[in-house]
Simulated assay, not measured.
Amino acid sequence: MKKSTLALAIMALVGSGAALAASPNVQGGTSNSSGVAVGSSNHGTFGGGNSGVALNGASTRIDLAGGPINGSNNAIAARGNGTILTPADMGMLPLPINVAQVWKDTESVNGAGSTYANFAVNSIRQITTLPIAPQFGGLVIGQVATNSSGAPASPVVPLAVGSGVYFGEWAPRATGTPPANSTNLNMTSADRTVWYVGDNAVTAMPTLVNAVYGVIGINQTGTDAAGNVLPGGLPGNQNFYTGKLTANYGSGTGSITGTIDRGSSSINFAGTSIGSNGTFNNGSTIEGRFYNNADALAGIYTGGASVADHVAFGGSKIAP
């Protein structure tokens, strides 16, 4: 098989969600549309219309659930965290090509009786350079999962396609040839981007009375070029922001309060207003929106001294 034909076949499978019905209203946001642009997946062969991202200026958006998440999960189920994603994991012939190195992590947040908000997080470090592929150093994808009662979910079950809510970080490819085994996702890059997107965005905000959301935030996963662990921890063993946010909305006005924290670092949502169309923002450093009749939310924080401080977050309603 010629290299160009192989590259096309791999990209079609990595960046697609074949045979998936289009989601009703895909919406999201990004800190840098040149790094990550969000919207309905529109891959030429396997678009599907569900939540997608276009990476590094690519012209089409890959389907998150059907592409990188599905392929990563197949590889990890077969060989464990930190394994190499191969064409076989994407339903192709077992060709000797190292596509990417992949990890998975989970997290939960409790704070409203016995209900837990649960999350799955996939981390992907690209290895192989494909001629027609959008190149990147690392892509971390958080997924809001179904709530559990009494204990964190085991296993964690992400929300189904059509209701999926995703958030994460991306970094471009560093110079040089990536090693086969590394935890450097290049998240120290000045072009690091945080983003969020979901399948079923709220367009008419429902009434909320002291609605509590369990939330996590993703920020700088992996190691730097010298091997030092970044604040976000190692892929597969991450150090998330966690916390609870309280939302109130009625009669055309609303607000979000609370913090998400990681050690001494804290993001305060004071001054965040909710719009009638399901979006929220504080006018400067926080933006996001609600999904699934406001049962979930996602967004980004772009404050701090540099892009290193930017955080992508997501959460689900745990009370009432």
Score class of each variant (00 low, 15 high):
residue 1 M to N: 02
residue 2 K to A: 11
residue 8 L to Y: 00
residue 18 A to T: 03
residue 23 S to W: 05
residue 27 Q to A: 15
residue 36 V to K: 05
residue 37 A to H: 11
residue 47 G to V: 00
residue 48 G to M: 02
residue 50 N to Y: 01
residue 50 N to S: 10
residue 53 V to S: 08
residue 57 G to N: 05
residue 59 S to L: 06
residue 63 D to G: 14
residue 68 P to R: 03
residue 72 S to H: 04
residue 77 A to M: 02
residue 86 T to Y: 01
residue 88 A to F: 03
residue 88 A to K: 05
residue 88 A to W: 02
residue 90 M to N: 06
residue 91 G to M: 12
residue 103 W to V: 09
residue 106 T to A: 11
residue 112 A to I: 13
residue 115 T to L: 09
residue 118 N to R: 03
residue 122 N to G: 01
residue 129 T to C: 11
residue 130 L to G: 06
residue 143 Q to N: 13
residue 146 T to K: 13
residue 146 T to W: 03
residue 149 S to R: 10
residue 152 P to Q: 13
residue 152 P to D: 09
residue 154 S to M: 05
residue 155 P to K: 09
residue 160 A to F: 04
residue 163 S to K: 14
residue 165 V to S: 07
residue 170 W to Y: 12
residue 171 A to M: 02
residue 177 T to H: 07
residue 177 T to F: 10
residue 185 L to H: 02
residue 185 L to Y: 00
residue 188 T to S: 02
residue 188 T to G: 00
residue 192 R to W: 01
residue 193 T to A: 10
residue 193 T to F: 03
residue 196 Y to A: 10
residue 206 P to S: 13
residue 209 V to T: 13
residue 210 N to S: 08
residue 211 A to V: 04
residue 216 I to T: 14
residue 225 A to H: 08
residue 238 Q to M: 12
residue 243 G to L: 12
residue 245 L to S: 10
residue 246 T to G: 15
residue 250 G to H: 07
residue 250 G to V: 04
residue 256 I to Q: 08
residue 271 G to M: 11
residue 282 N to P: 03
residue 282 N to F: 09
residue 289 R to W: 10
residue 296 A to V: 11
residue 296 A to I: 08
residue 296 A to F: 06
residue 296 A to T: 12
residue 297 L to F: 04
residue 302 T to H: 12
residue 308 A to N: 13
residue 313 F to I: 10
residue 317 K to L: 15
residue 318 I to P: 00
residue 319 A to L: 02
residue 320 P to V: 14
